[in-house]
Structures are given as structure tokens and as C-alpha cells.
Write a protein that binds this DNA or RNA. Structure first.
Length: 427
RNA sequence: GUGGGAGUAGCUCAACUUGGUAGAGCAUCGGACUGUGGCUCCGACGGUUGCGGGUUCGAUUCCCGUCUCCCACCCCA
């Protein structure tokens, strides 16, 4: 049997109602913060991600779906294309390409699929969905301000609260400027050198390949050593330090709780200053539902003008997973207001007329078939959770009044055609 | 990419310590009940036991490979 490819899956009803609920809530929140939707291609030139995400990142080195396009002529060498592994690079590319700063546009959101060639596990798929938001623009427009960082964080908190995710934790850090990180990395290597032999095998490897990852070590014996290691906060320059302080000041002012995590780092090269993550329990090892940060140098790295920016990406798959602990898809689905049961030959066309009329009143209407016995229609109406069942038989058509039964109470009345919609809307 | 666990009906799961005709509940469809449901009862449908190979008279069971999912690692949202 044909199956969906590894790491992909079908989203089916009723779960899709939960996805729509999340996306509708996100759109509401974005509107309140004056963000506007942008839709970029799901594949881009490979070069964009190499330059934007970072040549040396695992994402670019081994986790992208990349192929060579067919050139138009023999002499035309095919361009390397890649399914987008994240969306910030694409949005910044569009910002540059269309000179969006000229139009005064600087707050964007986007919802859609991303692709990474990783080994799948729960909450980690090869096609996954992200809700992205970015603030980007000329410094003169205030895009470098810590107020934007705080605004983004407040937006995220509002969104999580809106969809009903309780007990989230905001972890906050500043990863400084590139110069700060260089100094920090150097200090970290020096601090590790004399002690690394006493640490676990993983840490010994990390100390060489990626020293920052030592902070993620979960081995209890290593913790005392890790506590003695320097943190990035000690290496921030004046500008980064005051920026970070002001972000925290504003968060305090709007009562957004956070915990400082000096060990929080970001994997992508372009992050600077503010880095953050929202986590939620019981997602196993993949406990981050959302992450983001500031990327002041990205536009220039992609050949654009200076355009400080900050943004985040919600892992929608994980958000929905978290949501399923408390909410069921059934609770957000809209059930039919009325199920119409045509009864007897020729009644399909009469039922269609009634259904058409009721739908014009914004009622959710479903119907059976004139071949159904009444019992079957009742069972169908029950199964789909309809509020009312409406019987359209010869008697009803002759009288131009229909039997309307409230399924939960069993109360049944005869209602003239003209009064049907109002009657159903009432309760 | 590495390590471990698991794949049996649409869903949730059985089928004794290497082996003997693959079962239940729920769901679906039909009937009891030709214009009044949720309950009950009866019946039917449903499977190349993930796929391929091997051992065996005989494999859901044992062995090998492979695919997929799950857990963890790497890394990351």
C-alpha cells in the first residue's frame, strides 16, 4: 500500500479543526499587533539558506532537501534549489527584493510548511509547520529598539494564552554581538581545557566541535564543572547589555514572566543579542514549542541594506500536540445546526431547496438522502452531533410546514417554511 | 546519521515458555423496527499478521534483511 513518505503525515478531521483554531487565533493576535501576512515560496535558491542560515550549521550541511533544477539549455547549468528549512531567510529575501522598507512595511507574519531531512520522532517531522513573525526595517524606523523585542515576546505570550496553553516558560538570554561571542567562545575553550578530561564522553566531543553545547549536558557529575564555566553575559559589550536590560524592564512593566537562562544559545548563525525560547512540559526531548531572537546582521549578509530585525517561529505541530493534552479537536469543531432528512421519492429536491435557504442564514446544514429510512437519518444526525433534525416528507411539502425535532430534548414542533431559519437560530 | 523498542481487521489489543486452520471489543453495513434517534438483540463485512527472504512437514510466533512509527542521541522549532 502507498504510504505518505517518511516523516510526513496527513492531518485529518477532526484534528484539522484544532489547526484552524490555532491559526485563526494567531491571525487575530497578529492583527492586534499590526502584523501583515507575507507568503513566500516553499523553495528558494540553496544559496539563500547557505548564506542566511549559516554554511556551517547542521541544517545546511545535512538536513536540507536540495536538488538541482533543470537548466533551460545544455549550456544553462541548473540552479540548486532547496525546500525551505525555516522562513526567516525567505522573508528577509523578499524584504530586500521588493524594497519593502520603501512601503513602510516592517511587521510580517507567515504560516506554512517547512522541510528538514531529519530522523523523525514525536513533534519532529520532515514536513512541519511554522507560524513565523518578523519585525524588520531601517534602524531609523525603530527596528533595533529593545521595545520591539519586548513587543514580540508579549505577542507570543498573548497568543499562547489565547489558544489555552498554560504553564509555558519563557527562557531569555542575550547572545551578544559577533565580537562578544568570539571572545566568549575563546574563554570557554580555555576554561574547558583543564577540566574536560573529567567530563563525560559527550562533553569531551562537544568541547571540540561545539563548546556551547556543553551547557546542555544532563550528566549529574558534570554539573559542578559546568557551573564554574563562564557565561556569555560576562562578555556582553555596553550596547548589548543595556539593550538586554531594557527588554527585561519592558517585560516587567507588562507583567510577562520570564527566566534568564545564560546558557540558552541559538543554533543559527544570524542571531544576535536577544534569544528566547518558550517551553512546555511533556513534549519529551522536543520541549521547545517556539524559539526566536534578534538578527541584526542578516539583511546585510543577504546583500540588503542594514535592517535590524527580530522574530520567532512557533513549531505548530508541537503547539497542537501540547494543546491536545487539554483540548480535544471536538471542542473547537462546529457541529451542524440542522440535519435534513428527505423522506420518500422526489424529496431530495425539496430538501435541497430548504437546505439552500437555511444556509443563506449562516446555518450549518447537512442532509441525507430520500432513499434513507427515517431511522437511518436519525442515526446519521446523532452521529454528526446535529442540534436539530428536519423532516422533509410529502406531508410537510403539502402543508409547507416541516417537522423540526430538537435531538437532545426530543421536543418536536411543526414550523412553517418561512419561520424555519429564525426558529433554528433561536436556540 | 547512531543506538534501542514496536509493527496483527478502520481503531484499541489478544493468540502460553521458537511453531499447528488468526480472535475479541469498538467502529462500519444490514435486520428485528415500511414516517421518529441515542438502548438492546441478531447477523454480515472486514486480514498476503508492514514488506522480502531463510529455517521447518508447517511461521503471527524462530533467524536475516528492509520499510515505517515510537524513545533517546546528534542537532534543533
Amino acid at each position: 500500500m502507498l504510504k505518505s513518505p517518511r516523516g510526513t503525515r496527513d492531518l485529518l478531521p477532526p484534528d484539522t479543526a484544532l489547526w484552524n483554531f490555532v491559526e485563526a487565533a494567531a491571525r487575530d493576535i497578529f492583527r492586534a499587533y499590526n502584523f501583515h501576512e507575507i507568503r513566500t515560496p516553499i523553495f528558494e535558491s540553496t544559496e539563500l539558506f547557505a548564506r542566511g542560515v549559516g554554511e556551517e550549521t547542521d541544517i545546511v550541511k545535512k538536513e536540507m532537501f536540495t536538488w538541482e533544477d533543470r537548466g533551460r539549455a545544455e549550456s544553462d547549468k541548473g540552479q540548486s534549489l532547496t525546500l525551505r528549512p525555516e522562513n526567516t531567510a525567505g522573508i528577509v529575501r523578499a524584504y530586500i527584493e521588493h524594497k519593502l522598507w520603501e512601503r513602510g512595511l516592517n511587521k510580517f507574519f507567515s504560516i506554512g510548511p517547512m522541510f528538514r531531512r531529519e530522523r523523525p520522532q514525536k513533534g519532529r517531522y520532515r514536513q512541519f509547520y511554522q507560524i513565523d513573525a518578523e519585525i524588520i526595517g531601517p534602524a531609523a524606523a525603530g527596528s533595533q529598539s529593545p521595545a520591539r523585542d519586548a513587543e514580540i515576546l508579549e505577542l507570543v505570550a498573548a497568543l499562547l494564552d489565547r489558544v489555552g496553553i498554560a504553564n509555558w516558560t519563557l527562557e531569555l538570554n542575550s547572545v551578544g554581538c559577533p565580537a562578544d561571542r568570539t571572545k566568549f567562545n575563546e574563554a570557554l575553550r580555555q576554561a574547558l581545557a583543564p577540566v574536560v578530561e573529567k567530563m563525560c564522553a559527550d562533553c569531551q566531543r562537544r568541547a571540540v566541535t561545539n563548546p556551547l553545547r556543553v551547557f546542555d549536558c544532563k550528566v549529574p557529575e558534570d554539573q559542578p564543572i559546568i557551573k564554574t564555566l563562564p557565561t556569555i553575559s560576562q562578555f556582553l559589550d555596553e550596547d548589548c547589555r543595556t539593550h538586554f536590560e531594557e527588554v527585561k524592564n519592558i517585560l516587567n512593566a507588562v507583567h510577562i514572566p520570564y527566566v534568564e537562562n545564560p546558557r540558552l544559545v541559538r543554533g543559527l548563525d544570524y542571531y544576535q543579542k536577544t534569544a528566547f525560547e518558550f517551553t512546555h512540559g511533556s513534549l519529551g526531548a522536543q520541549n521547545a514549542i517556539l524559539g526566536g531572537g534578534r538578527y541584526d546582521g542578516l539583511s546585510e549578509a543577504l546583500g540588503g541594506p542594514p535592517a535590524p530585525g527580530i522574530g520567532f517561529a512557533i513549531g505548530e505541530d508541537r503547539l497542537v500536540l501540547s494543546l491536545m493534552e487539554t483540548a480535544t479537536a471536538e471542542s473547537v469543531i462546529r457541529k451542524p445546526d440542522v440535519y435534513i432528512a428527505p423522506l420518500g421519492g422526489g424529496m431530495n429536491r425539496e430538501a435541497a431547496r430548504v437546505a439552500s435557504e437555511l444556509r443563506r442564514h449562516d446555518l450549518v446544514v447537512d442532509l441525507g438522502d430520500e432513499s434513507f429510512r427515517l431511522k437511518k437519518s436519525f442515526e446519521a444526525a446523532d452521529k454528526m452531533g446535529a442540534r436539530y433534525i428536519l423532516i422533509v416528507g410529502e406531508n410537510e411539502v403539502a402543508a409547507d410546514a416541516f417537522a423540526l425535532k430538537h435531538l437532545a430534548s426530543g421536543e418536536q414542533v411543526t414550523v412553517p417554511r418561512a419561520d424555519l431559519a429564525q426558529r433554528i437560530l433561536r436556540k
